[in-house]
Design a protein around this nucleic acid. Structure first.
Length: 945
RNA sequence: GGGCGGUUAGCUCAGCGGUAGAGCGUCUCGUUUACACCGAGAGGGUCGGGGGUUCGAUCCCCUCACCGCCCACCA
């Protein structure tokens, strides 16, 4: 006998181990089995399972289990991401906490070793947590973005893109993160609104130049008053950058300044003469209309500088301190300290004209949280624009479909406006860039280094790079030995070249953006570039389930790389799941303290409850507001199923070998057979779509409101009755329906269903497989019996009406009043005869009669063509009953009026579909009949009262 | 400044051209031998405002308002 409630804590680990041991997580080897493949969005190896993972991975597992049960070769391929910056940060922090040397003191090799050590110890956290969620991943295929095979894939991709001209090195402004001292991509920059100011500076004109500046205007906006100025005003939100100014720009059509173009100003503090140039970028309506230009530290200014041929002066160090290009007193100063110092100096010297407080958007690093600096460096870029074209086309023509569809717009929008992707990072933890630099040598006469310039050799291995270099240099006439040196410094030293008669190469120090390796995930995990059977069988994958926050970071890039290297989309469908928020709709964050830990929830309420909640709520477009109460409700749902099974067990509802539901005779069994078939169809349809919430809803309603609330209640009289045949049939049907329920519910609630699958096999025929490997049900529509549906529908209505009247009239539960049917047709009379016992029990009735007229003092209600009357004279409250009847009549009257209006409208009759018109006619007739009956009852009542 | 969502019962959300739904909460009743993590019943909505299309609009179109998110180099 089952315990009174399900105990998830003891069951979950046991069943998970059993599933894994059974080999069910691995895809079927059957060559005829159609593959169904999901690659997991690899969580950061530093991560731990949060509620978003719980949602995302539940949905993936639901799909995987569903398709597995449908006989597909289901593969859910798991793995983790090395997460460059995040992981490096974690380990650095840990080193610091333990009082160890920092990474720069340790050196690269030692530090990277440390990270691997950390990974070996703690890297398994998240995958173990996925197991607790019940994730049926094929762990034998688990991958890591930095493992041997994936590294080979990364190298191959890098080299090929380079050779195809789709990956190149370029010197341009990048988003520089001074905290991590690395470049980051546009996507890793977050604009945040902060309090700031426009500081208006007056830059003095050089060479004694003056001009007339308008200060008063008439109604038409014409200048009426001028003042003579020997300065030009510029505004800035970043005063410290003025030390790197190399020009002032005004708009070419701005008459106020037209005489000044070509003149110069003398930059305060620095004393540099810098030109005033005309450029469309300057907006005459903003500020003074004149703008200072700092090409090395502003993306716009960089463009202006290029067009106007201005000097580019970098004034910052990698830590965003002022460097040696600024006057000595400011060197080494932090950028924000410098800002204050410059403003103070400007005020003191009188060239600070105004401070205008404002809020403005400032770029911040998404991981470091510090203000990003535009910084001029050499970096590697991927020509994303070119790669984006096939990725756009593939979604445009439906090779890959987003669900919900509207996310495609977001995808298009980004890809159509895509910028080159900066893929190099000045970090240590990651895929080291397979590029080697050699000296640029002058080719006329004696070998000479060309200062600061390099030849680049991109190759998958050092040997290849050396060979490439040897070929290259010998072609130029330098027949030297080529060797790889440890550092750039060594390589640059002329002595080593001259003395040893060799050319030194050094490998690029940088690593690749983590997303570079993630972009290859759908094929690299299958073994590419090796020609593995997995690649052949499982690419392209079926469905990708992920959050909208990484459509750009990940989805779009996988599309680009997948199409480019595999010639096919990486997945057929992208299911975008919502973002989980707290019950008030706020984003969960540790700092807000509103985080719901899925593992705690699993501990408290069971994994199945958490999973069902995630599935049921996944329909929400953008946000899921999660409350614990909701999860409790679904925990209760599990308990309900548990107890229904317990009831079945107590009543010896045992599965019968060879039982054929098609042959059942009892109306309730025919009926539940039909309801079961309908539910199978609906759940199957919903999971195919996938519409997870629809699947969960159908399961919930069927199991609770149909199977438990009605079928089991209707079965009770038979199960307790004397009709042995009916009893046996009902037992077998109940067991059958329960089996179907377990199968249908298994993808969403795997643990409780597997446990019940096992427990219900203690008697009856043995199970051939665990539920996880059982076959998904499918039944013919012919099993839906219209007559049984109608009959049980009538039964349910009758019981509901009786209960409703009893409750409204406050009839004590113990009272067993008689019920009289008046005007019942042959069919109703027959149904009554068949289900008399049921009606007596469920309606708590004393007896049921068929009569010509209602007995005196009976409370009437309409039941199809008949009227039913409940004899409860002793409990009747005349006023209450009058009120009840009056309200019912009013309801029907409203209905009649509305329907009449429609049916009297010739346009409606002429244009509406015939079945709609017919439906309205029926509705009218029914309402009229019901109203008449109730009115008669009301008048009888009035006569009595 | 562009783009995308949302606005339906007290709360959280389904529905998306033909009689407004669910869960939770509320109220009433109930220890009937599966389940109080339960059962029975009830109340509760001019489907954000305004136009339009249609025989008919919560659903389609336009417009406004409010909420949220994403993208964007404006001093």
């Amino acid at each position: 006998m089952l315990e009174k409630t399900f105990d998830p804590k003891s069951v979950e680990p046991r069943l998970y181990a059993a599933w894994e041991a059974s080999g069910a997580f691995q895809p079927s080897e059957d060559p005829n089995a159609e593959p169904f493949v999901i690659v997991i969005p690899p969580p950061n190896v530093t991560g731990s399972l949060h509620i978003g993972h719980a949602l995302n991975n539940t949905l993936q597992d639901v799909l995987t289990r569903f398709h597995r049960m449908r006989g597909k070769a289901a593969l859910w391929l798991p793995g983790t991401d090395h997460a460059g910056i995040a992981t490096q940060m974690v380990v650095e922090r840990q080193l610091a906490a333990a009082g160890n040397a920092g990474r720069r003191d340790m050196g690269r090799e030692a530090f990277v070793d440390k990270v691997w050590e950390w990974k070996a110890e703690s890297g398994g956290t998240i995958t173990n947590q996925l197991r607790r969620l019940g994730a049926s991943c094929d762990w034998s295929r688990e991958r890591f973005t930095l493992d041997e095979g994936l590294s080979a894939a990364v190298r191959k991709v890098f080299v090929q893109l380079y050779k195809q001209g789709l990956l190149y090195r370029d010197k341009r402004l990048v988003n520089w993160d001074p905290q991590f001292q690395t470049a980051i991509s546009d996507l890793e920059v977050e604009q945040k609104e902060v309090d700031g100011a426009y500081w208006h500076f007056a830059y003095p004109l050089a060479d004694g130049v003056t001009y007339q500046f308008p200060v008063a205007f008439d109604d038409e906006g014409k200048a009426t008053e001028f003042e003579t100025r020997d300065y030009i005003v510029v505004a800035t939100t970043r005063p410290e950058t003025m030390l790197g100014d190399t020009g002032v720009a005004v708009h070419p059509t701005d008459e106020r300044y037209s005489d000044l173009v070509g003149k110069h100003v003398v930059l305060p503090i620095v004393g540099r003469r810098i030109p005033i140039v005309a450029d469309d970028y300057a907006d005459p309506t903003k500020g003074s209309g004149a703008v200072k230009i700092t090409p090395a530290h502003d993306f716009n200014d960089f463009g202006v500088g290029k067009r106007a041929g201005l000097e580019v002066i970098n004034i910052l160090t990698v830590e965003a301190r002022l460097n040696e290009s600024v006057p000595a007193e400011y060197q080494g100063m932090d950028r924000f300290a410098a800002r204050k110092a410059i403003v103070a100096r400007a005020e003191e010297e009188g060239w600070l004209k105004e401070i205008e407080k404002t809020k403005h958007m400032v770029p911040h690093g998404d991981r470091s949280g510090v203000v990003i600096e535009p910084f001029l460096t050499d970096q590697w870029y991927v020509d994303a624009k070119t790669l984006a074209q096939p990725a756009l086309k593939a979604v445009e023509n439906g090779d890959t479909v987003f669900e919900p569809r509207h996310w495609e717009k977001t995808y298009f929008e980004w890809l159509r406006n895509i910028e080159p992707w900066c893929v190099s990072r000045q970090l240590w933890w990651g895929h080291r860039i397979p590029a080697w630099f050699g000296p640029k040598l002058s080719t006329d006469g004696e070998a000479q280094y060309v200062e600061g310039q390099f030849e680049i050799f991109v190759a998958e291995t050092e040997e290849e790079a050396l060979a490439d270099a040897a070929a290259f240099y010998s072609k130029l006439g330098f027949d030297k030995r080529i060797k790889v040196l440890a550092s750039a410094q060594e390589c640059l030293s002329d002595e080593s070249y001259s003395a040893a008669n060799e050319i030194g190469l050094f490998r690029d120090e940088d690593v690749l953006d983590t997303w570079f390796s993630s972009a290859l995930w759908p094929f690299s995990t299958l073994g590419w570039p090796e020609k593995t059977s997995d690649v052949a069988r499982f690419y392209p994958t079926s469905t990708l389930v992920t959050g909208f926050d990484i459509i750009f970071f990940w989805v779009a890039r996988m599309m680009m790389m997948g199409l480019h290297f595999m010639g096919e989309v990486p997945f057929r469908q992208v299911f975008i799941n919502a973002l989980v928020r707290d019950e008030k709709g706020a984003k969960m964050s540790k700092s807000k303290g509103n985080v719901m830990d899925p593992l705690v929830l699993i501990d408290e309420l069971g994994c199945d409850a958490v999973r069902f909640t995630m599935t049921a709520m996944s329909g929400q477009a953008r946000d899921i507001k999660l409350s614990k109460q909701r999860i409790e409700g679904y925990r209760n749902f599990g308990t309900k199923l548990w107890n229904a099974t317990r009831f079945a067990q107590m009543n010896e509802c045992v599965r019968v070998e060879g039982f054929d539901p098609a042959t059942v005779q009892q109306p309730i069994n025919q009926w539940i057979r039909g309801e079961t078939v309908k539910t199978v169809a609906e759940v199957t349809r919903a999971l195919e779509a996938p519409e997870f919430d629809a699947a969960a809803g159908a399961l919930y309603r069927f199991i609770w409101n149909v199977f438990c609330d009605w079928y089991l209640e209707l079965a009770k009289p038979i199960l307790n009755g004397d009709d042995a045949a009916a009893k046996a049939e009902t037992r077998a049907t109940a067991a059958w329906a329960l089996d179907v329920i377990l199968k249908l519910l298994h993808p969403v609630m795997p643990f409780i269903t597997e446990e019940l699958w096992d427990k219900t096999a203690e008697v009856g025929p043995a199970r051939e497989t665990m539920l996880i490997s059982a076959q998904w049900p499918a039944f013919p529509d012919s099993w839906i019996d219209a007559e049984a549906q109608a009959e049980i529908g009538w039964l349910v209505d009758t019981v509901s009406e009786v209960r409703s009247v009893r409750a409204e009239m406050n009839v004590p539960p113990g009272a067993k009043p008689p019920l009289t049917l008046i005007g019942a047709g042959a069919e109703t009379t027959a149904r009554l005869a068949r289900h008399r016992d049921l009606l007596l029990t469920l309606g708590r009735l004393g007896q049921i009669d068929v009569a010509e007229a209602a007995p005196a003092g009976a409370v009437p209600f309409v039941l199809g063509e008949a009227t039913a009357a409940l004899s409860i004279a002793e409990f009747i409250d005349l006023a209450a009953e009058k009120a009840r009847l009056t309200k019912e009549i009013a309801g029907h009257a409203g209905e009649i009026e509305k329907t009449n209006k429609k049916l009297n409208n010739p346009d409606f009759l002429a244009r509406a579909k015939e079945e709609v018109v017919e439906e309205n006619r029926e509705r009218l007739a029914e309402a009229q009949a019901a109203k008449a009956k109730l009115e008669a009852a009301l008048s009888r009542l009035a006569a009595v009262g």
